[in-house]
Amino acid sequence: MTLQGSNLALRFGRTVALDGADVTISPGEIVAVMGPSGSGKSTLLHVLAGILRPEHGEVRLDAQRIDNLPDSRRSKLRLRSFGFVLQFGDLVPELSLRENVALPLRLLGTPRAEARRRAAELLGHLAVAELADRRPGQVSGGEGQRAAVARALAHRPSVIFADEPTGALDSAAGEVVLDALTGLARQEGSAVVMVTHEARVAAYADRTVFLRDGRVAA
């Protein structure tokens, strides 16, 4: 599915976060979003993902306009079509890694056994299968982040949004996570929109969108 944001604008009080940003994410494409602090990177990601509504402009997933959907429909769309990897994983601390990965599937109504099978498959791909029964607090940051990648991929979303996915990891652990995220996304046909301030992370993408002052500079 093609995700397209057109002429996106959004302010927080008097601060202009987006000021006419245009971006198109093709199916299966991996796109890095870079730019100085305050250039609107994370805001763009949140607007494209339907978490924030733009004041101007629109976001479409294929033909469907999604920015003006009611909150409940946007939530359902996010659950069904999008996956998320955040800087600190944001796994549910009370659940095991396996349960965390199976969670989006269970919320979408996938039978328990099938969700567990898919979770085990992904945790295996990410080389953390042996940690499946541990909770996030019992594994390293890199291992937790790999589980977060597995969770983002579990329901085969159209687009995965990653905000500084390796920001809290050292470079070796970061590479493992990026290899897994981009490798599995390519394998499964999910597009990835990845905010980063590191060129070495952006090098995993097919192209880089550079933001300045809320607009796409290059």
Binding site: A203, Y204, T208, F210, A217, A218
Partner: peptide
Amino acid sequence: AEPMLDRQRQAHLARMREMRVQRQ
């Protein structure tokens, strides 16, 4: 000078992608 540097950044990032593939 800004557009020139923006283009250079993209050229550097493209080379970075090539090097990452070589690295892998």
